[in-house]
Amino acid sequence: MIVRLLVILSVVLPLLACAKPVLQLEQFSLVPLRVGEQLIQVQLANTPEKRAQGLMFQQTAEPGMLLLYPEPRVISLWMANTSMPLDVAYIDASGTITELIALEPFDETSRPAKSLVIAALEMPRGWFAQHGVTIGQQVALLPGATR
């Protein structure tokens, strides 16, 4: 019996050593942001790894997330592993909101920006309407924010 257990352990332990590590989730810092007339703090996703993770696996969209890119580009968002409905503002290089779109939980349909943008601001569904934020308004990182 003990010999059998040792044989099993000698086979299983090396396999466990080769197992894939547990998913390492990125940590996000909070940064101050002006959205229209609103002053808020949001999570900042300013690296490829943080932007790829976004709000996936989080239980709430609060306090929101700014996906910031180093230069303007056409970006596309989807909702893989994201369980809450979101509203998203695409933001151009001048800080102007160019589009507002709604994203549904777990929808993996790609939703590209219609023009070059430098950021996307993901907020809980209804946040922009509730705060009177519309296309054409400005978004700006406030002093003290890390780019």
Rank of each mutant, 00 (worst) to 15 (best):
76 S>C: 03
8 I>A: 10
33 L>G: 13
104 E>N: 05
105 P>I: 11
49 E>D: 12
137 Q>R: 00
10 S>R: 06
82 T>R: 08
52 A>C: 05
28 F>T: 09
77 L>M: 15
57 F>G: 07
96 T>P: 00
108 E>T: 15
15 L>W: 11
123 M>R: 05
20 K>M: 14
28 F>D: 08
38 Q>R: 10
121 L>M: 04
88 V>C: 04
60 T>G: 09
54 G>H: 04
44 L>E: 11
8 I>V: 12
76 S>T: 02
80 A>P: 06
4 R>G: 09
11 V>S: 09
56 M>A: 15
1 M>P: 13
102 A>Y: 05
62 E>D: 08
46 N>G: 10
132 G>C: 06
77 L>K: 02
133 V>H: 14
137 Q>Y: 00
51 R>M: 09
97 I>T: 13
117 V>F: 04
129 A>F: 09
5 L>N: 00
49 E>Y: 04
61 A>C: 07
136 G>R: 02
35 V>N: 04
126 G>I: 03
73 R>C: 11
86 L>C: 03
61 A>W: 06
16 L>E: 15
123 M>T: 04
9 L>T: 04
44 L>S: 09
138 Q>E: 09
115 S>K: 12
92 D>V: 04
133 V>S: 15
55 L>R: 01
5 L>D: 00
78 W>Y: 14
91 I>M: 01
140 A>G: 12
2 I>M: 07
40 I>W: 12
69 Y>N: 05
38 Q>P: 00
38 Q>K: 12
59 Q>W: 01
107 D>A: 10
113 A>E: 04
2 I>Y: 09
45 A>D: 04
79 M>I: 07
58 Q>H: 14
64 G>D: 00
132 G>Y: 01
93 A>M: 06
75 I>R: 03
147 R>A: 00
40 I>N: 09
4 R>I: 13
79 M>W: 12
46 N>E: 13
60 T>L: 08
17 A>P: 05
114 K>G: 11
80 A>Q: 11
119 A>W: 02
84 M>C: 01
144 G>M: 01
9 L>R: 01
100 L>C: 06
48 P>N: 03
58 Q>N: 13
110 S>Y: 11
72 P>L: 00
130 Q>N: 07
10 S>D: 05
124 P>Y: 04
77 L>F: 15
57 F>H: 15
54 G>K: 02
59 Q>V: 00
30 L>F: 08
61 A>Q: 07
107 D>M: 03
43 Q>W: 15
146 T>D: 10
145 A>N: 12
116 L>F: 14
13 L>T: 05
90 Y>F: 15
17 A>W: 15
141 L>S: 07
89 A>T: 11
41 Q>N: 12
84 M>P: 01
82 T>F: 08
81 N>L: 05
121 L>A: 02
64 G>E: 03
129 A>R: 12
